[in-house]
């Protein structure tokens, strides 16, 4: 999950911490696309993604002096955490994490099928994740892409561990169903 740019990243870090204004645009060029992808995985509305992304950049540049470079990929990882935080703050502030109505066709089991994604392109997978209900999507992203345990997710979101498990299970099963439907539509276009 990391772009390895080695020495370039360290130089960029030094320039940002030194107040070099051209470094801001270099950062944007290097990481802007990736961070936008992270942001849009949490937020489904494109206009909101634009606002949150800009706020995340401001946050990154404001606190860059607090960052300690710890090797290749550390700047990207740190920036990703800030972007995820900004996205979650946005969702909490806008009260977007509304009650997720149960989807009847999805099995409400803790153990269900895992989505099979070998033949699914990143763009399609991203789009399908984005189509999940907000609550499911948030927990799914935190578990799968941010590597958080259910205990950590429960602490972050202020919910019980069991709730994180059950919400994730429903998200996983729903995504699996969506992938199956995608394959059907792809093989049998109307």
């Amino acid at each position: 999950m990391k772009f390895f740019i080695g020495d370039k990243e360290e130089q960029l870090t030094k320039r940002l911490q030194g107040g070099d204004k051209t470094a801001l645009k270099d950062f944007y060029s290097l990481y802007g696309g990736y961070l936008t992808g992270v942001c849009s995985r949490y937020i489904s509305d494109d206009e909101d993604v634009k606002d949150v992304f800009q706020d995340a950049l401001i946050n990154i540049f404001s606190h860059i002096k607090d960052f300690k470079y710890r090797g290749a990929g550390s700047l990207q990882a740190w920036s990703t955490r800030i972007t995820v935080n900004q996205s979650l703050n946005f969702l909490r502030g806008k009260n977007k994490l509304e009650t997720t109505a149960l989807v009847r066709d999805v099995a409400d089991e803790t153990e269900g099928m895992d989505p099979e994604t070998e033949d699914i392109s990143p763009e399609v997978l991203h789009r399908l994740v984005r189509e999940l209900p907000t609550g499911y999507r948030t927990i799914f992203n935190l578990y799968v892409f941010e590597n958080k345990s259910h205990k950590e997710i429960a602490e972050i979101l202020g919910i019980k561990i069991d709730s994180s498990c059950s919400q994730f299970s429903r998200a996983k099963n729903l995504l699996a169903k969506m992938i199956t439907d995608y394959r059907k539509n792809k093989n049998n276009p109307r």
Partner: peptide, 11 residues
């Protein structure tokens, strides 16, 4: 998804 990028919005 590690290498997934989107077009960054204008800032």
């Amino acid at each position: 998804m590690a290498a997934y990028k989107e077009t960054a919005p204008e800032v």
